[in-house]
Each structure stands twice: as C-alpha cells, then as structure tokens.
C-alpha cells in the first residue's frame, strides 16, 4: 500500500514492560504500526491486552522500554519530561471517558486550559476558544459551567478543549463510555465530521458498534496487534 500522507504515529518493535510484584508484565511486546494523517482509527481489545499502554504511548504520557515510537515525527524515547509536556500541548488533543472538565469553571475557560500552558496566553485566546466551541456546536454555552451542561455537551466541551491548540492528533479514551446511546451517536458523528475535515483520530473502545464509526480498527491481544483492518483490506486487495 502506498500512502503519500505523512505518518502521525509510527511504532517499530514498540515494547513496554512493567515490573509488578517481582513479575514482568509485557504490556506491549513488539508492536509495529503506522497511523497516517487523516485516519480515524479504533483501538480495541480486552482489558490487559495492551491497548491502554499503546494509548499512553501515542499520548506521549509514557516512554517505551525498547523499540521506537514517533508521535508527530518526534521520537519519544529521546525526550525529557518537559519536552513530552510540550508535545502533549501542541501535537495531541485528549478526550477522556469522564470528560475531566474543571468543576465550577466556564466552558470557555475549560477550553482555554491548554492555551494557558503554551508559555504565554495568545492574544486571540478567547476567539480561538469560541471557534473550537463553534466546531462542537456549543458556542452558545461558552459561559456555562460543567454542572449546567448535559453529559453529551460536557464531552463536546472536552473535545473543543482537545481542538483548541490545533493538534495533529486527537486521542479519545473510551469517549462514549459515560454517555447514553443517543449522545454516543452525536459524539461519534462529531468525530466523523472532524475526521472528514482532515483530523487524525485514535479512539480506544471496547464496543464494536462504536468502533464501526472508525475507518480502521486495531485489535490488541497480549501486547500485540492481532488484527488490523487496514492490513486485512490490503490483503484482500492483493
């Protein structure tokens, strides 16, 4: 397969071992995968399969034991903590299952949080936040605090927060896990819209219905990818 687009995530022999109670846990055991710009990828697998560890790597929250992973072109194992923080700030937008919004803080200020850690707050910070809120169709709720918003709205505020720094990649960890089926659809359609506009999205889920919204699916088991629908298509095509 030839893909002219650049790789946002590029893992080669990616390995991560933990030592827990004297026992070595092989959370990731030599994963090779490339995720390109503009892809919408679902990461699936049972608990303990290594999908969360893979997400942590993609999110520059962790460094590999061995092997390599490049996020936005930067090799993680060569970066110190401050450089990782900078990478998370500029390249990655996080969306969490529990939304993780600051309580009693308006939607606008929640969205502004990543901008605050940019060194200095850009002059057009408020405009950018409103633009991000507009992308999730919540510009009218900018002054509302999380407890005045529904679950679906809170998750959309969190997505706006992920978008505000114009990242190369959105990482969503079970983004619909705390939502009902109606708002789940709403959020997933929003992801599809963002993806159609060129955003790369990687989403962890254990729900096959949710994964169906993505263009590609990675199945993890025992620290490795056991099925990659992109590779399967490639095989089918050949």
């Amino acid at each position: 397969m030839s893909n002219p687009k650049k790789a946002v995530i590029e893992a080669r022999g990616l390995t991560r071992h933990y030592v827990q109670g004297g026992e070595t846990i092989r959370a990731l055991d030599g994963v090779d995968v490339t995720i390109h710009e503009g892809e919408f990828v679902a990461v699936m697998g049972p608990s303990g399969s290594g999908k969360s560890t893979f997400m942590n790597m993609c999110g520059a929250l962790d460094r590999p034991t061995s092997g390599s992973i490049k996020v936005g072109g930067a090799e993680l194992s060569g970066l110190d903590n401050d450089a990782l923080a900078e990478l998370r700030n500029r390249v990655i937008g996080f969306v969490f299952q529990q939304f993780n919004l600051l309580p009693r803080t308006s939607a606008l200020h929640n969205v502004m949080l990543p901008l605050r850690y940019r060194g200095s707050l850009p002059a057009d910070a408020e405009e950018r936040c409103l633009k991000a809120l507009d992308q999730v169709e919540l510009a009218g709720r900018a002054s509302h605090s999380p407890n005045e918003l529904s679950g679906g709205q809170q998750q959309r505020v969190a997505i706006a927060r992920a978008l505000v720094n114009e990242p190369e990649l959105i990482l969503a960890d079970e983004p619909t896990g705390a939502l009902d089926s109606h708002t789940t659809e709403e959020v997933l359609k929003l992801f599809q819209r963002l993806n159609a506009a060129g955003m790369t999205i990687v989403m962890v889920t254990h729900d096959a219905e949710v994964a169906a919204y993505a263009g590609r699916c990675l199945y993890f088991r025992d620290g490795n990818i056991v099925e990659d629908t992109a590779a399967a298509k490639e095989r089918a095509a050949s």
């Binding site: 923080a85 993780n100 600051l102």
Partner: peptide, 13 residues
C-alpha cells in the same frame, strides 16, 4: 485527576 488532566494538556512539572 485535575493534576493528571493538566499534565495531559501540557502542564510541565
């Protein structure tokens, strides 16, 4: 969790 979130969105130590 708030600390974790702040770190995830780019807060340095």
């Amino acid at each position: 969790r708030e600390i974790g979130l702040r770190m995830a969105v780019g807060a340095r130590e």
